[in-house]
Amino acid sequence: MSPIVLRSRICSHKCSSKIINRRAFSSGVDSSSSIPSKETVIASQSILSDQSPVPHPPPAPETFPPASGGKIWSFLKYGLLGAVTGTVGYAGYLSYKCSYEEVDQKAKALRAAASYAPSEDSSAIDKYRGLLYSAAMTVPAKALESYLDLRRLVEENVLEFTEPTSDKLLPDLHPQEQHVFTLVLDLNETLLYTDWKRERGWRTFKRPGVDAFLEHLAKFYEIVVYSDQMNMYVDPVCERLDPNHCIRYRLSRGDTKYQNGKHYRDLSKLNRNPAKILYT
């Protein structure tokens, strides 16, 4: 019996040693596979470090629906701006296209509409319509009246610079001189001439024989100097040019008519018979 017992013990010991070896081998394989290598961990860390964090966009501000009062105010503002622009444009068109008298003539219908008064025989509805129409026309009529007043004021001020200072630039002739002709002379390039040189600048000279010319013609004509220069230039020049006072009257730029950027001598304002005016 002893050899059988010994053999069974030896077999059991070998089986137990094989089982232990198998467990150790399986545990070694699992441990090696479960623990990652250092290179793999380092590579994953470097990839994660290279990737910069993506910034998140800021949250969009909350929008609220506009209030109804803002729409009404915007509508009124743009409507008022359009009305003012149209009124100014129409006033400019009238100023360019029509004269003051033409605008005043056209405004009569608007004035009549603003002062409309229904008759006593008309019905209540007609009276109401008439009063409503008159009230609606009152504001345009007042605006047109203001425009006409402003335009009249502007034109009066402009006429002071564009028209001669008076409708009669010369006094009436003496009854005994009604037969005398009026000789109108220009100052520059007629009685005088102006020269310029680099060494001395501008110089003004009398024409040769101008003294004898004035003395002789003063016996037969009424001599008038009509220049487009300022009176501060005309008066002192005439004082030195005509010491014998052969020139009766002096007219300067204020007595000319300004049109299209030039000053014109208006002979119709001389208070003389146009058939007896000689202009040189």
Score class of each variant (00 low, 15 high):
Ala113Asn: 03
Pro58His: 05
Phe205Gly: 00
Leu187Ala: 01
Thr280Asn: 08
Gln105Arg: 15
Ser123Asp: 13
Leu185Arg: 02
Pro53Gln: 05
Gln45Lys: 08
Lys257Gln: 13
Asn21Tyr: 12
Leu187Cys: 01
Glu222Gly: 01
Leu270Glu: 02
Tyr279Asn: 12
Pro140Glu: 08
Gly89Cys: 06
Ser99Asp: 05
Ser227Gln: 02
Ala218Thr: 00
Lys14Ile: 14
Gly86Asp: 13
Ala141Asn: 03
Pro59Ala: 09
Leu94Asn: 14
Leu191Pro: 00
Tyr116Ala: 10
Trp202Tyr: 12
Val180Gln: 02
Lys38Met: 07
Val103His: 09
Leu150Phe: 05
Leu191Ile: 03
Val234Thr: 05
Met232Lys: 13
Ile42Asp: 11
Lys197Phe: 10
Arg248Gly: 02
Leu173Tyr: 02
Pro61Val: 01
Gly69Asp: 15
Pro175Ala: 12
Leu48Gln: 04
Lys18Asp: 06
Ser12Gln: 08
Val154Trp: 05
Asp126Pro: 02
Ser166Asn: 15
Ala91Glu: 06
Arg200Phe: 14
Tyr193Ser: 12
Arg250Glu: 04
Ser12Ile: 15
Tyr264Pro: 01
Val41Ser: 07
His245Trp: 08
Ile4Pro: 00
Lys262Cys: 10
Pro140Gly: 11
Val5Leu: 14
Glu62Trp: 14
Asn157Asp: 15
Arg200Met: 09
Thr138Ala: 15
Arg253Pro: 00
Ile277Gln: 02
Ala67Trp: 04
Ser227Lys: 03
Thr138Gly: 07
Ala141Leu: 03
Ser68Pro: 00
Ser16Gln: 11
His174Asp: 13
Ala91Gln: 07
Gln51Asp: 09
Asp167Thr: 11
Phe25Ser: 08
Pro243Arg: 04
Val224His: 00
Gln229Leu: 15
Arg240Tyr: 15
Ala60Asn: 10
Gln176Ala: 12
Ile10His: 01
Leu214Met: 06
Arg198Trp: 07
Phe64Lys: 15
Arg9Phe: 12
Glu177Ile: 14
Ser49Arg: 09
Thr165Asp: 04
Pro208Arg: 10
Lys262Gln: 13
Lys197Tyr: 05
Tyr96Cys: 12
Gln105Leu: 10
Cys98Ala: 10
Leu159Pro: 03
Val41Gly: 01
Tyr226Arg: 00
Gly28Ala: 14
Pro171Asp: 10
Cys98Lys: 12
Leu217Ala: 02
Ser119Gln: 08
Leu173Asp: 04
Leu48Tyr: 03
Gly89Asp: 08
Arg152Ala: 10
Met1Tyr: 08
Ala212Ile: 01
Arg253Met: 06
Leu267Tyr: 10
Leu185Thr: 02
Ser37Asp: 10
Leu278Glu: 08
Cys11Lys: 03
